[in-house]
Simulated scan of single mutants.
Amino acid sequence: MNARISLVALALASFFIATGCERRDVPTSETHTTGAAIGPALDNAAAVASVALARCDREASCSKLGEGRDHPTRESCLTEMRGKAEGDLNASKCPGGVNRASLDSCLAEIHAESCGNPLDTLERLAACNTSALCSRDRRPGGAPRY
């Protein structure tokens, strides 16, 4: 009898180890207040990095990187753009993180923006302002609203 209980306990332990028993505080998708799935939230730091990279890619494609230009190096561009994005996408303005689908739209708009149009702030692009990017369906602290 004890051997059978030990065998069952071992089988259950093996099952949980094999399938993973990881707790996740961030759900894989959010539900908008209308009930429609809007995709997973991205943490603020990852969104800031993505926006900075996209903006510096645009600066490079518009010949604004290099000695005597707006940004002497790519690293100086990234530092400046991270600082600007952090002001818009910080945890106090976007406590639930950034909506991934909205961020993808913003990044596409950054890449598509004409070199003749100054991109001094994210807010200038409709898809990139905080009201469009910030995940509205989560409370501060990461807990989903029900």
Rank of each mutant, 00 (worst) to 15 (best):
M1F: 12
M1H: 06
N2H: 08
N2Q: 11
N2V: 09
A3F: 01
A3T: 12
L7V: 00
V8M: 15
V8Y: 15
L10V: 13
A11N: 01
L12Q: 08
F15S: 11
A18I: 14
A18C: 05
A18Q: 03
T19K: 14
T19C: 14
C21N: 10
E22H: 09
E22K: 07
R24C: 07
R24M: 07
D25N: 02
V26A: 09
V26N: 04
T28V: 06
T28N: 13
S29V: 12
S29P: 00
S29C: 01
T31I: 05
H32G: 08
H32C: 06
T33I: 07
T34D: 11
G35F: 11
A36K: 08
A36R: 06
I38L: 13
I38Y: 01
P40N: 09
A41L: 04
A41R: 07
L42D: 09
D43P: 01
A46L: 07
A47R: 06
A47Q: 04
A47G: 03
S50G: 11
V51R: 02
A52Y: 08
L53I: 03
R55Q: 02
D57V: 04
E59P: 00
A60K: 15
S61H: 10
S61Y: 15
C62R: 15
S63N: 15
G66M: 15
E67D: 12
E67K: 15
E67N: 09
G68D: 11
D70E: 13
H71W: 08
P72K: 10
C77D: 06
C77G: 13
C77I: 10
T79L: 07
E80I: 05
M81Q: 10
G83L: 10
K84W: 09
K84S: 14
G87Y: 14
G87P: 07
A91Q: 05
C94K: 05
P95I: 10
P95Q: 07
G96M: 03
G96K: 09
G97R: 12
V98A: 01
V98L: 03
R100H: 02
A101G: 00
S102G: 03
D104Q: 06
S105V: 00
S105Y: 00
C106W: 08
L107S: 00
H111C: 00
A112S: 04
A112E: 07
E113M: 08
S114D: 11
S114E: 06
C115P: 06
G116C: 01
N117T: 09
N117R: 14
P118R: 14
L119I: 10
T121F: 13
R124Y: 06
L125G: 05
A126F: 09
A127F: 02
C128F: 11
N129C: 04
S131I: 13
A132V: 01
A132C: 04
A132G: 02
L133W: 10
L133H: 05
C134Y: 08
C134H: 05
S135Y: 14
R136M: 08
R136L: 09
G141V: 09
G141M: 11
G141T: 12
G141F: 08
G142C: 13
G142N: 04
P144D: 11
Y146S: 09
Y146H: 15
